[in-house]
């Protein structure tokens, strides 16, 4: 139990450091949106090539909590979808697999906006 927490810390930390190094060492001005988009698409591609699943086995939450894990779910959802529903699955499978997270974020976004004011 403790071991998988340590693994999650290590793998998750490494994945985040990669993002930090991209931000600090490349001459481009990189905004949060660039980082988020980059992680999701790269994660999806790595997952489709079959290299992300081993990372999840090793790091658990360390691989699924970073947004590359979101890309992984999108890719695996689409691949699963093709197996079970064919063409329709290819189109809808990705979002189906990630719908809980997305909708949760949207609903929470709205509720937080009704409750809180920006602090600055």
């Amino acid at each position: 139990m403790l071991e998988n927490i340590f693994n999650a810390f290590f793998i998750g930390g490494i994945i985040c450091v990669i993002g930090q190094l991209i931000m600090d060492l490349t001459p481009f001005v990189i905004t949060p949106a660039h980082i988020l988009v980059g992680y999701v698409t790269t994660g999806a591609v790595i997952s489709a090539l079959g290299y992300y699943e081993p990372l999840v086995k090793l790091g658990g939450a360390g691989a699924t909590i970073p947004l590359s894990g979101f890309g992984h779910s999108l890719a695996q959802g689409a691949i699963e979808g093709v197996k079970t529903k064919g063409l329709l699955g290819a189109i809808g499978g990705g979002l189906e697999a990630t719908s809980v997270g997305i909708v949760a974020a949207i609903v929470l976004g709205f509720s937080m906006a009704t409750i809180f004011n920006p602090k600055g």
């Binding site: 931000m23 905004t31 949060p32 920006p118 602090k119 600055g120």
Partner: peptide, 18 residues
């Protein structure tokens, strides 16, 4: 005004940017 300028020119003030 820091926050008014920030949200107009850059990002929402609550966004976690470095």
């Amino acid at each position: 005004h820091h926050d008014a300028a920030e949200r107009q020119l850059r990002f929402p003030t609550e966004l976690g940017v470095q």
